[in-house]
Amino acid sequence: MSVDRAIVAKIAALARIRMDEAAFERMVPELNQILEWVEQLAEVDVTGIEPMSAVIPQPLRLRDDVIDADPLTGGGVRDAVLANAPAAEHGFFGVPKVIE
């Protein structure tokens, strides 16, 4: 499967990366080169093989339902949450107005 400009434009839109003409000119052949190379995977017979679901064979650990048990993963840290915001007002993050 090879990608053309239209497909790359669609992917770039999905990935929210603005691209100009020069970027398309560079990127389309590069992506095709990489995709052509990874497609050798289709040669591998994977009949009856499950996709890997966990790198380490252990089930998921579950956490107790306790609020703010660890300050690093708890709430009540609004200042820390907003500290790096490009636009923060009245305790909110600000973004360009969204019309729904």
Partner: peptide
């Protein structure tokens, strides 16, 4: 995350670094 779920809190008061 460990942030609380209660309704009606101040904006972004119940947000952990994980939730953000």
């Amino acid at each position: 995350s460990g942030a609380a779920t209660a309704f009606g809190a101040e904006p972004n008061a119940q947000v952990s670094l994980v939730d953000a």
